[in-house]
Structures are given as structure tokens and as C-alpha cells.
Design a protein around this nucleic acid. Sequence first.
DNA 1: CTCGTTCCCGGCATCGTTTGCGTAATATTT
DNA 2: AAATATTACGCAAACGATGCCGGGAACGAG
Lengths: 343, 343
Amino acid sequence: MDDQHSVTIKDIAQRLKLSPSTVSRALRGGTEIREETRRLIQEVAREMHYSPNPIALSLKEKKSKIIGVIVPEIANNFCSATIAGIEEVAYSRGYHVIIFQSHELYEREVTSIQLLTSRRIDGLILTISNETRNYDHLQALRGKGIPLVMFDRVCEEIKTHKVVVNDYQGAFDATCHLIREGFTRIAHVAIAPYLSITQNRLKGYEEALRSHHLPVKKNWIVHCDFDAMSIEKAVRQLFEGSERPDAIVASTERLAIGCIKVLREMKLRIPMDVALVGFSDNPLNKFMAPSLTAVQQPTFDIGQKSAELLIELIESKTPPKNYRTIEMKTTLDIQDSSRNLTG
Amino acid sequence: MDDQHSVTIKDIAQRLKLSPSTVSRALRGGTEIREETRRLIQEVAREMHYSPNPIALSLKEKKSKIIGVIVPEIANNFCSATIAGIEEVAYSRGYHVIIFQSHELYEREVTSIQLLTSRRIDGLILTISNETRNYDHLQALRGKGIPLVMFDRVCEEIKTHKVVVNDYQGAFDATCHLIREGFTRIAHVAIAPYLSITQNRLKGYEEALRSHHLPVKKNWIVHCDFDAMSIEKAVRQLFEGSERPDAIVASTERLAIGCIKVLREMKLRIPMDVALVGFSDNPLNKFMAPSLTAVQQPTFDIGQKSAELLIELIESKTPPKNYRTIEMKTTLDIQDSSRNLTG
DNA sequence: CTCGTTCCCGGCATCGTTTGCGTAATATTT
DNA sequence: AAATATTACGCAAACGATGCCGGGAACGAG
């Protein structure tokens, strides 16, 4: 119905019988302009509901003012909370955010990055997929000079700013807590072994055992993917041996939920038969049956910090001397799933 | 470090000593070109890793290939699942998605729309905030000819495609279920009274009572915002009268969770003292204490359908004869929170 | 040999905005 | 009053890509 034609700088110029350049200067705060003319132009601009065309700006400035974010799944509490943090900072600094989901697939991660770069985004924030072992696509990004910030699942090979939590300490604390509660046969269910967070959490778990003179048993450490089948297989495997664990440290929220599901099916009660600690910030944790003890991460802050670092990279003229890795603190939220009720 | 200079059509032209127009024709499949030249150009383009600049395209075509989405909170299961559906369809059709959060604030909704339109998005998908009672900002959007699709919380006043669920039936089914379980004093906790979903769910609740010859008591119907204070006040209010409800139908997931929280504080057991049914698709429902009976909505499908409708609007030359309202089916997932254990 | 046709390709304008440069008009200096 | 300095604006190019138009070359027909 309507013209669909938004008012441009030329429309203003024409109406005032001025040149587009003059209008531009009046609006952009340039100096070579009479104060009277400027006010006139500004007034007319407001009256005509002028708003600058960001696409034209992008073309000229070679800046899209858009940052990309790649996460495994948006419908995941950790991811969406992080994104909320990213968005807050981004919007306050005039950036918009385009989100991609890798669905934990390496292929999707690669194609997402291709799409994102072809979109001429100014920078990228990502946490790699569960499958990702090759970082050529990220290296290519760095090669093209596109600012990058990694969070959560990061990797040594890529030199850039990173935002992580103290995964080691989180797992260490969780395991120590279980030990203090009196559990001694503590298993660990983790995701892909080559991921940074997996390794760090595993180290924390192992170190906690060692520091309490408990043995680290290889068959009490299992890795799995995120599908139900894989989790079920991994958990059942833990209880196949002669010596069954009496507690589990689950490396992520979805794994913790998966454990609950499988343990229920196996008619094992939590925490009476098996205690459980997860990594999770879900506000529903305390309403679960049993309420879930979890290592909590400052998700919103992680997102905020990531966005701040990225925008800093984008807007600095020169590449930074050295890249930083921000490590945030986790807290252990103790609920019922890890209590020793027999004591 | 690098040039940051992505290869353009001119670079190819220069290297081949051809004109940009020829290169463009070769790449865009125009006809006025020799097949030999085309292959040569395509080969060189591939070799030089050429990818068209979408910003330049946008400027010329007046299409950004970006659609905006406004939801109350991304860190909300319903919203993020819907967004997942939107993204799937959008990306498969070559669109990118920019997300805004209204945080249930009318002001934020208005400014988000301003930002979005100044971004020259091709269309918008939104569900209004809990506060929104004035639709001028949406009307303005329609006035500008920007395609719009509403979902979940829609409104009569705006003529456009809409995607909703059968809120009436969902609430009706939920209430009937409670009645069948033997509950007779059923209360309803809802969000803002002027929202479409509130009204429809309320009607379903009331009609279920009436059809079973149960009285509709006004003081068993409470409305509240999403903050903890407001929910607590509303729920406590229900139990102040002489006749206390024995069941609650909560109009949204967050309200259901809020009810659980307050009921716990009040030392009321679910479902023994008060039964509860919510509207929720959270996969954690069945792991909660008690597991939560809920009206489930096909969130992913809602997102998909919304995106399909929007893209249809965007890509059709002429405005449609009539706008459609797609109504999807809800299903009642019966868990423990609504079971009558005394029977 | 000339004219017309067809085939390929280049020139130019365009999208909306910014910016360096040129310049006319005004202001300042001597 | 003349020379210079300053002001305030217009012109044109550029960002990357597209598409209309026009033109040169090759060719066939008369």
C-alpha cells in the first residue's frame, strides 16, 4: 500500500534546496556548516522522520555493526542466558546480534561461520560444538582479521580473547563436596574428551579424589554425546562393573538431567543409591526431584564480558599485544541430590 | 593484521581485464554472455574466494534479508524454542534473524521496534510484552508497509498473520482434567488481563467450570506480573478467603513455577493440598517435584509457521487479500502435580 | 560494398551516505 | 580600498553490485 520508501538525506536536501552533502554535514556534526542551516536541517529531518540508512553506512564504513554468535543450541539454559548477557552489552554499544546454532555439529559450525563471514559481520563470539576437533575454520577467521572471542568451550590453538569459568575448581569443589558427604565411589560423566571444559573438569575431579587419597578409576570416567541413547549407554556402563559408584559428577546440565532420567529407569534413588552433582544454572534446579546440586556459572556475566571484549577488539585500531583469558568463578549450589541421608 | 579487504567483483574484473558488469552477468546467470567467458569468470571467482557483498546487495535491492524477532525474554523456554523454529525456516530461505528482548516492558518493545525499523529489516515477528496495551507502534509498522507476524500474545486490533495455540481449549482441557480428578475449588493464576492469551485461557477455564456446574468465583481468579513479589502476592491472596482452592490452573510456565515456590513456602503440598496445572513445554517438567502437569504448546512449530508466514508476506508482491490466524493444538501432559491421591 | 542483425561486452547511473576539494561569498586584515 | 583569510556550501567520487543502453565486431544478405 504505502511507498515503503523511507526518507533519505536527498529528500531533505531537495525540500530545502540544498545539497545532500550539506544535509549530511548538518546531521553528522561536521564543522563546515552554519549553525542556522544546521538547526533548520535538523528540524526538517526530525519532522520528516529521517533515520540514516545503516546499510548505506555499512557499505561505506565497511562495518556492519552486527556481531555473530554461534552456540550449540539456543534452547539451552546456559546458552540463552549467555546470549542475554551478550545482547545487553551489544545493544548498549549500538551493535546488533545474529545468532546461529551449531546443534553440536561440526559441519553446522563451519557453514555457520561461512554464512556469518559472507554477511560481513564485525566480529564473532562462539563456543565450539561437541564435535569440533579441527580449528581451521576459526584459524581462517583470524586470518581474515575478523575479531573473535571464545567462551565456555575454548581451545588453546586459537589465539584470541577467551571467557571461561574456573572449570577445574568447579569440578574440584563438587567432588570434594561429595567426598565430605561421605561418598567414596565417585564417577564422572563428561562430554567429548578433547574439549577444554571436559579436560579441566576432569582434572578437578581427579585432583579432588587424589587429594583425599581416593583412587581414580578409569572405568568410572565416561564420555558421551548429547543424545539420549549415548547418555543412557554411558550411565549404564558405570554400573556394570563389580564395584558400583555411589555418586556421579555430571559435566553439564543436560548430562545431569540425562543421569536423572537413566537412574530413574534403573530404579536407583538419588541420593540414597547414587548422589549427583551437575553443572547447571537452571532456576528450576531447586524444584526438581530431587533438587539438583550444581556448579553454577555466572552465565549472564560471561555473555557480557565476551561482548565487551569483542567490541573492544572491533573498535581498537591495532590488534592487541596479548590476548586475555578471563576466568570467572563458579559457585556450588548444594541441594538434595548430593546429600548423604544415611549419615 | 591482514588487509581485511574481501575480494569484490572489481578485483575479478581487473584481473581478467573485463568490466565489472560482465563479471556480474557471469556470476548472476544473465544471458548476454559467452559461455566460455562465464566459465572463466566463475573459475577465477572461486579461486579468489569471491563472495558477494550482501550489504551492497541490500542497498540496491532495498532488502536486508534480515528479519527481526521480539520476545519478552530469550532465556525462557517458550521463547527460545520458538526462536529455534523461526531460525530454522529463516536460514533455509536465506534470511538471518536479529533478536530483541522486551523484558516484558512496553517501553523496550517500542524502542526495539524503532531500532529494528531503522535497521531496515524486511519483516518482524513478535509476541507483545506483558505490559503492552497500546498498539500504535505496531500500527505504525503496518503503516510503513513492514510485514508483521504475531504469535502467542496477539491482538485483535492489528490486522496481520497470526500464529496462536488453542488457548481456550488448552485451559478448558486442563480445568476439566482437574475436575475429573475430583478437584472442585479450582483457581486460576493469570498474567495481564488485557492480553489475548489471558482472556482465551480464562474463558476456557470458566467454561470448563460452568459445563461441570461449578461456580466461577471472581476471587479465585488473580492476575499478576512476572516478578516474584507479584506472584507471591497473587497466590497468597487466593488462600486468604474462607474457602480455599484445592487446585490451580497457572496460565504460563513461569507462573506455574512461581506457584510451586510460593506453595512450598506456605507449606502446602502439591497435589495433596493443592493440585497444579501449568502451561509449559519445559523438558524438565517431568523431573520436577512434583512432576508438573502442563498444557504443552508446539513451540518449535509455532516458530516455523510464523517464519513461513512472514517470508510469504515479504516475498509476495501484493498484500494478501486476507490475513490468516493459524491456530495450533495443545496437548495436556499429565504428571503428578494434578493427581488426586486421596481418591 | 553496404546495410542490418546478432552477439558480447563496456559505460554509466543507481542505491544512501560520507568526505575531500573547489569556490563563491563574506569577513578580516593592513 | 585592496589583499588575504575564512566561511559555507556544492560537486563528485567512492563503497559493491546490478541492469539498462549502446556500441563494436562479425556475419549474412542484397
